[in-house]
Structure formats: structure tokens, C-alpha cells
Design a protein around this nucleic acid. Sequence first.
DNA 1: CTCCTCCCTTTTTTT
DNA 2: AAGGGAGGAG
Length: 778
Amino acid sequence: MKDLLKDLNEAQQTAVQETEGPSMIIAGPGSGKTRVLVHKIAWLISNGVDSFRILALTFTNKAANEMKERIKNLIGAEALNLWMGTFHSVFARILRIEAEKIGYTRNFTIYDTVDSKRIISQILKENIIDAQIYPLNYVLWRISSAKMNLINPENYNFNSQIQAEDLRAKKPLLGQIYQTYWNRCRRANAMDFDDILYNMNLLLREFPEAKEKYQKKFQYILIDEFQDTCFSQYVIIKTLSQHYRNVCVVGDDAQGIYGFRGAKIENILNFNKDYPDCRVMKLEQNYRSSKNIVNAANSVISNNHTQLSKTIWTENDAGEKIKIIRTISDHEEAMQVAQDIFQTKMNFQADNSDFAIFYRTNAQSRALEEALRRTNIPYRVYGSLSFYKRKEIKDLMAYFRLTVNNNDEDALLRIINIPARGIGDVSLNKIVVFAHENGLSLWDVVSQIKKYRIEISAGIADKVDVFGTLIKSFNAQLETKNAYDLALHISKASGYINMLKSVNEPETQTRLENIDELFNGLKVFCENAKENDTEKILTLSDFLLEVSLLTDLDDDKDNNNKVSLMTAHSAKGLEFPYVYITGLEENLFPSSMAITTRAEIEEERRLFYVALTRGMKRITLTHAESRFRWGKREFTQPSRFLEEIPEKYMEKPRKKEFVDWSEEKNNYENVEVCSSELRFKKQNFEQKSFSSKTTIELKKINQNFKKVKKANYDNPTLAAPVNQDEIVAGVNVEHEKYGKGKVLQVDGAGNDKKAVVFFPVTGKKQLLLKFAKLKIIN
DNA sequence: CTCCTCCCTTTTTTT
DNA sequence: AAGGGAGGAG
């Protein structure tokens, strides 16, 4: 047991041992916060506390899994009985047990944001509400905020302040939309993310015996990332901890970055009020980052007005100064980052996993991915277009959802005609209207379509009947087949897989691969259960509950030794020796959506602070002078945050470089050179001279590059490297993007002249010669 | 009813 | 850049 304290400093030891009564740990970045939590839980268990009486709430699933693993390594498998997970996953599990009490069945569906949007969009359409005045995101945000403040539609509509706000915003229908959405979710036996928290509160408030049960169950409660909890989460914690009062919250006000979704940093202050006897401990020594990084981050955050006082310091070396890279375009930015990683790997024998690239928006990952691919650097993108948001996955999941929960209207509407069953919009609409008018659920009508007199042709009624029978047959196997087997059966029997295979689209292959991945996930899910020697089979229902709260596939199998790409938000809690923060431009980081109020800017600054403090050895900040956004090139200004880092922590003083263009030796100005060749030469040039070239020189090259590009743009035909007539069937060519290939066929003439080219990697492509800069090779 | 095409919006961040 | 919606042809 002593061992558990061995590697901890004094402040950390105290934090671990102070287990009784309310306590709050304010922990700066890199101060060993996770370590304290892990050791604290291990400490409790090894002091005889039953692990299933400990509730530990984290912010992400990833964090939960990692901590569980570390606790397991400290004290063994006993740790697995711990109640640990995100707020949403833990309380969804509890609600599943208690579902009947609050008017749900245990097979309730969890709607994600995409589902919610679909439903709200339908509501708007049905009620002929202008989506211009009621943008989906705004409506959703408004409803979400209400729920997070425990305001149900009734309270919403009778709250004069809210009504006044909506009136002022000229959106008086919001209350009605909210009510309709609310009813629809409940009718569908479904909860969205906010409902999980709302319903947990409802359960604790309306059912004293349930309240008592869970208050007495959880003897110790620990909450990570407390600064990012919202009001409804706060109330749950407060209620659950009332009996034992052994509640420990861990957080850092300087790292609160979820205000946009209702998180209240004030919860930290409120906690002091609710528990006046609470002990406050501070962890201020940073073990992660170099002095330069710590100091730079401190300087940045000192620009914020609202913060608790604390001093983050470190005994680490001064380390490298912070680097800045400025490029002409986002594309160039990505290339330079990739090359910098390449160089660093060479010079310092670093692993890929030592590197992370952060960005403000997911869309920025594309250019970076491409650059890394070209440089042959393995990488993994976290988040992005979440696996579970892909169309084919959502479709299949909709089948699963409908099988498990027949009342899931959204799922039904999504797939009743996918694959096409001849049940079109017109008929479907009649069914929906009939159901709504008669107070029936959609499934009631669909499953007994012949019973009702609806104005649809007998043929279509037959088709609906067949669909209903199909779903019923799936549902009948719910308890007897395990998740994997049933899912496989559904995907085949529904005709979905065949439909995908029969369409000859370029995406078909990827879609099928994604489905394969889904089934791998299912397999792993079922096999894990076997390992944990649970006798009962894991049903599709179990799988859905588990999976609907995951944002991405957690494949830990081969993500070792890859460069990590992620948003600054998802970087929270992680650390990497070499960190690149990209896109440091006004309107991007800080985001254009968050520069109107002081509070918004401060949140963006905290986000930048979080990003900076992930770095251990080196931080590289990059920004581009122009960037593709919404399919257009936009010119940018450097981020204000760059100015907030004192020059003494930066590699080079920032001063305007004077470029003497008269001296310019023009190596690549030959417009005849095709752009891929130019890029190749340029890259070669940069690679050879990377470390020694000054920014001025790089800038010159960039400038030339820009000129050629502009020339190409102004007069595309000029850029053609060869006479188009030379491109005939049988000739070997090289394409900028697809590489080497063989021309199979040429059609058309002049501007419409196109070639069918076979590329070994990507397959057959049809290319307009006007645009495709094909080069003839031998 | 389905399929095709064109146009439109969308993107801030996540459970 | 890409998916969804609207609208028209078959």
C-alpha cells in the first residue's frame, strides 16, 4: 500500500490520502492529475473499499479506458468492477435498469446529434416553419441548453424570461418546436444526449427510493474535468453525494473549453458554496513540459480576466524555444509540418507516436493527411467524421435500432425504403399522417398495415406488410442470438449488403470496408464478453447501448507508433513530446464563431492554452497566408494568440522580413513545367536545405510557386505539359494525383477532349485533358 | 415510384 | 467537397 504513494510528490500524496469528505483538487496541466486520480482509486480499493461502490466520472471514453487500465496495472482485475465512464455512459447504464420508472422501456434508443437534427428538420417541415429563421443548429442548441438547465418544455413555455428572449430573437415558435421534439423522442422510446442527464435527474428527484439506492451505493464519487460539467451534471453529482459526502472533484478552470455546450466553470465556485467544509488542494508543479512551454502558456493565459489564482511552475529544463512556421497556403503548411516531422524523426530518433498535430476544426485534417501520406508517415486521425456518422453505418444501425426498439420512428423512416422497396415518399407520408392523427405510433400502423384503412394501393400495403414482417422476424431473434450473429443476419436479410454491392460507385469499396469494421467491432464486443465469463449472451440491444455513446471506433490494436491528428478539444488530457498547432489564424483559431464576446475569446484562449500545454519538448506553431475554406481560397491574418507569446520564448524574433525581389533567381518560372514536376523540384529543394534555409529563401520559392500556379490558373491550357494530340490510347502517362497510368481510350475534341486512363492504384478514371495535367512517360 | 441532375448548404469545438 | 433536398423525366 505504501507503494501506491512512492512515486508521488507531497501535494499529490495528500490528494490521494484525503479520501473522506468533500474535496477539490485544482490541478494545472501536467501536474499529475490523472496520476492522482488513478492512485486515489487504487488507494481506496486497497484500503478495503468495494470497487463497485466507487463512481468515477470522466469526460471521454478514452480517458475512462486509460484510467481503468492503469488502475488494473496497480492493483489487478478487481479494478474492473469500478463504475467508471463518462457521465453519459454511466447514467445510460443506470437508466436502462430503471427505465420503466420514468416511462421508457429498457431497450430505449439513444439519439445522436445527427438523429436529433433529422427529427427537428422534419418537425420544421411538417409545420411549415422556415428553416432560415429557425436554423437547425440554433434550435438544437436552444433545446440542449434548456435541458442542461433542467428546463422541460412546459417550464420553457411558462418561463417569462425565456419567452422574452425568444421573442427578442424573433423566434417565438421555439417553445412549440421543443415540445414537439420532446414528445416525439418520448413516443419513440428514445433519449438524446441531454435527455440522459435530464432523465437521471428526473429519476433521482421523483423516486426517493431510487435516490436512496444510488446514494447508498456510491460510497465514493470522483469527477474528472470538473470545469467542463454542466448544470444538470452538477445536480446529479450533488444529489448522489448527499449521503456519504465523499466527493472529490478534479479540475482546472484554465482548461475549461466546453462553455459552448453548457459547461459552467462556475461549478467550481458553486462547489465551494455547497460544501463549505470542502478541502481545496492545488497541484501546481508541472512535470510535463519544458520551462519555455510552461512560461509561454502562462503568458498566454494571463490575458484572461476570469481565472482562479494559481502559479504553474516546473523544474524541467528551459528546453527548445517555440517555433513558428508561416506558409503561403494550407497545403504548404501541411507539407512543412510533414517534413518537419520527417526531419525531427531523423535527427532525434523520435517515434511517430511522439508527434501530434492539432487543429481547430476537423476539416483541417484533410490537407495534413495528404501531406503525411506523401511523406510516408503513418498517422491516425482522432474524431473527424466519426465512424458512426457514416451513412452506411447509420443505415445499418437504424436497422438494429428498429429491431431492438420498434418505436424508434427515426430509424423506421430512415430505412423503410433502403434498399428501395417501392414504398415512396407519398405513401409513407400518408402512413405517417394517419399514425399521428390517430395517436398511433408509426410502428403500430406499419406492423398491422392491413388493419387500417389508409389510402394507399394494395400493392404498396403488401410491401409495407413485408417490411413489417421482416423487422418482426429480426426482433424475434433478439434474445436468442448474440449481437454479432443477429447483426450479420439483418445486414443480409434486409438486402442492405446486396444493395451496396450492386451499386457501382467509387465509394462502394470503402462503404463495404466500413461495414466490415462495424462487424469486427461487433465480434470483439461479443468475444470480450466471453473473456469476462459472463454467461448471458450479449444482445444487439447491449451493443447499441455501448456503441451509441462512442464517438469513434476505439481500435487500440494498431494505433501504436503513428502520428496523432486531432482537434485541440480532443487533445485535452493528452501529452506528446512534439506538438504542432496548426492554422493559427484569425477567424480560425480563434474561431470566427467565437470572437464577438470577451467570454468567447477567453474560451478560445483557454483552448490554445490547453493545446500548448500538451507539449513536452517542442511546440511548433503554424499559420498559412491563405486557406481553402468552403471550397474557396481565403486570405488570412495571423492569430492574435501568436502575439501573446513573449518573444523571449520564441525561436526567432517576429519581424517583418524584407524580401529583395531584384535578387531573385528564377529557377522554376518556366510555365511549361507541369505542376507536379514543379512541386517535386520544390520539395526536393526544400528537403535538401530544410534546416539551413532562411524564411526569406523559402518565401522566394513559395512566391515563384505561387506565380506559376497563378499562370496555370489564368490560362489552364498553357500548363499542359504536352501537346494533347500526343495523348492517345496505349500511351503511358503520369497524373499529378493518381500517379502513373496507361491511356485506354480518348474521346471528344478541343475543350471536351477526355481520356480514359487506368491507374494501378486508383483504377479507371475518366479525365478531361483540359484540366488533367497528364505527362507522357516511357 | 424511382432515378437522375442540379443546386444548396454546410463547419467550431463533443457526449 | 460532399451529401442532402428539390424537381423533373421516365
